[in-house]
Computed example of a mutant assay.
Amino acid sequence: MAPGQRLARGVARMLRSMDHAVLTEFTPKRGLRVDVISLGPKGELWIIECKSCRADFASDRKWQGYLEWCDRYFWAVDADFPQELLPEQSGLILADPYGAEILRMSPETRLAGARRAKVTRDFARAAALRLQGSIDPLAFSGGVF
């Protein structure tokens, strides 16, 4: 498991403890793939980008494009990450493979209704397809039914 995936697992565990539904590697729009997206119990959408090192953060040129697809945006990093590199106007999560903790809550910028409906619908569809694929892998392999 790659370092970013280990952070995503810890973040997902924390979000589940907060009653959020979680997907990893979700595409809200063609050309954008977020590390973690969650759908909270009141319909709130959070995006979390997991950064394992300075170079990983420096190479991410798309993160500002994620802001228009969520109500709250967070960075998730491990204890060794130089946190001063991260923009202060976003949330901060300290994570490891086993859990995570919110160090700084992200400011809320509520999505417009139409955008929220689209992202929520896409989230539900992705979750259902992933579940079906885990139950019936042949349905996605081109196999004969």
Rank of each mutant, 00 (worst) to 15 (best):
Q83G: 10
Q89Y: 07
P137G: 13
R104P: 06
G113C: 07
F81G: 10
Q89A: 14
G133M: 05
C53H: 12
V11A: 03
A117Y: 07
F81L: 00
F74K: 09
I93H: 00
P41C: 11
A95K: 02
G31K: 00
A12F: 05
Q89V: 04
C53W: 05
F74D: 09
H20A: 04
R6S: 14
G43R: 06
R16F: 13
W69E: 02
E49F: 01
E44H: 07
A124H: 11
P41I: 00
K42A: 12
P137Q: 03
C70G: 02
K51E: 06
G99I: 02
G65H: 07
K42S: 12
A112Q: 14
R61F: 09
E68G: 08
L92H: 06
K62A: 13
V36F: 09
L85S: 12
H20M: 06
L92P: 07
G31I: 01
Y66A: 06
S59H: 09
A112G: 15
V119C: 06
V11I: 07
G43N: 08
D78P: 11
A127I: 01
L15A: 10
A117F: 11
D71I: 02
Y73K: 05
F57L: 15
D122L: 14
M14P: 01
L15D: 00
R54W: 12
E108C: 13
G133Q: 13
R121H: 12
E49C: 09
R104N: 07
G99C: 13
Q89H: 14
T109L: 12
A100K: 06
L92F: 06
L131D: 13
Y66M: 11
F123Y: 10
A12Q: 06
L7K: 08
A21H: 08
A126S: 15
L131A: 14
A114E: 12
V36Q: 05
R110M: 04
A95H: 00
L92Y: 05
